[in-house]
Simulated assay, not measured.
Amino acid sequence: MDPRDRWFEDYREGETIAFGDRTVTAEEIVAFAREYDPQSFHLSEEGGRATPYGGLIASGWHTAALTMRMLVDHVLTRHGLGSPGLDELRWLAPVRPGDRLRWRATVLEARRSRSKPDRGIVRQRVEAFNQKGEQVLSWTAAGLVRCRTPAPDAAG
Results as ranks from 00 to 15, higher is better:
25 T>F: 07
103 W>H: 09
106 T>H: 09
113 S>A: 10
131 Q>L: 09
81 L>I: 00
124 Q>L: 13
86 L>F: 15
116 K>V: 12
1 M>Q: 09
111 R>H: 04
29 I>N: 05
90 R>K: 15
65 A>Y: 11
101 L>I: 11
35 E>T: 14
102 R>F: 12
120 G>C: 13
28 E>A: 11
115 S>F: 08
71 L>F: 04
37 D>K: 01
54 G>T: 04
86 L>Q: 12
34 R>M: 09
88 E>G: 14
3 P>D: 01
24 V>A: 07
37 D>C: 06
64 A>N: 04
3 P>T: 04
20 G>H: 02
106 T>N: 08
123 R>Q: 13
83 S>C: 02
57 I>M: 10
64 A>P: 05
91 W>D: 00
25 T>Q: 08
132 K>Y: 12
9 E>N: 09
92 L>E: 15
103 W>S: 02
57 I>V: 15
16 T>C: 09
13 E>L: 06
112 R>I: 01
112 R>V: 08
123 R>Y: 11
67 T>F: 09
66 L>W: 10
15 E>C: 04
50 A>H: 11
105 A>Y: 01
151 A>W: 10
82 G>Y: 00
116 K>N: 12
154 A>W: 14
67 T>R: 04
84 P>T: 02
99 D>E: 08
126 V>A: 01
50 A>I: 07
136 V>L: 09
156 G>Q: 11
116 K>A: 11
86 L>M: 13
140 T>C: 05
12 R>Q: 13
25 T>G: 08
22 R>A: 07
57 I>Q: 07
83 S>R: 01
145 V>S: 00
20 G>E: 02
52 P>S: 07
65 A>R: 13
105 A>K: 01
17 I>L: 13
132 K>P: 05
66 L>V: 03
111 R>E: 13
147 C>Y: 00
62 H>P: 11
41 F>E: 07
75 V>H: 02
54 G>H: 04
72 V>M: 12
70 M>D: 10
135 Q>I: 00
8 F>P: 06
119 R>V: 03
53 Y>G: 04
140 T>G: 00
74 H>S: 08
84 P>F: 01
155 A>T: 12
21 D>N: 15
104 R>Q: 15
7 W>L: 07
8 F>H: 04
31 A>V: 14
41 F>D: 08
